[in-house]
Nucleic acid binder design. Structure first.
Length: 210
DNA sequence: ATCCCGAGGG
DNA sequence: CCCTCTGGAT
């Protein structure tokens, strides 16, 4: 994809969805962090189903700690990888209470120091909670970067760096959500919906069987 | 490189 | 049955 195709690509996605937001449900920065941590290799629908019951009971680090490990596991058992996520979230809440006054830190370094929080999760929090122009590369964005020709790369980090370099500044803050939503509903892993795709004209990917 | 690990879709 | 889903730790 060349520069003018990239411009058209995002202008089209923006026109279809002027103010894109996360489909994960949360009412505070802490809930956002917890929801993203739980969303690893899981669908947002499944995460929301669990957090709609969990957050009203325990929407702060201290209240999660009060649940105890078993109690927390009980709330998130329907989410994949739930044992490691429960352990990591408990450890993260402990650190938030003891080292950050119960608040979510605003720096990449402090975020990535939290158990269960890696580069991708830190990027989501920095973007969605603090408005920074980061690019969290999840399974969707990694696939689209390669499939479309927007940012080919062998690793998520490589795709991230190319996206940050190639996406025009005025689209950068929202680009993360446009790409995720496009990947989820149109440019699907199994069956990309190229005939109904609004940006197919700017995309390198041409499926053989239509 | 491997493990973790439930739900939904095809 | 197999694949996918807003990955991270060992």
């Amino acid at each position: 994809m060349n520069a003018s195709q990239i411009e058209s690509f995002f202008a089209t996605l923006q026109a279809a969805n002027p103010m894109p937001v996360t489909e994960l449900e949360y009412t505070s920065v802490f809930e956002l962090l917890a929801a993203v941590l739980l969303s690893a290799q899981a669908t947002d629908v499944g995460v929301n189903k669990a957090t709609r019951k969990l957050f009203p009971v325990a929407g702060t680090p201290q209240k999660i700690l009060d649940l105890g490990l078993e109690g927390l596991e009980g709330h998130i058992k329907t989410i994949g990888l739930y044992r490691s996520k429960a352990k990591h979230l408990m450890q993260t809440c402990q650190i938030l209470v003891e080292q950050h006054g119960g608040q979510v830190p605003r720096t990449r370094e402090a975020l990535e120091a939290l158990p269960g929080v890696g580069r991708k999760t830190a990027n989501v929090v920095l973007n969605s909670a603090f408005g920074e122009a980061t690019m969290a590369v999840d399974t969707h964005i990694f696939r689209l970067g390669n499939r479309t020709g927007l940012a080919p790369g062998k690793t998520p980090f490589e795709v991230e760096q190319k996206l940050l370099k190639r996406i025009p500044a005025n689209y950068l803050v929202d680009a993360h959500h446009w790409l995720i939503l496009h990947g989820r509903y149109v440019c699907q892993a199994r069956k990309p919906q190229c005939p109904q795709c609004a940006v197919a004209a700017y995309c390198d990917f041409k499926p053989k069987t239509l």
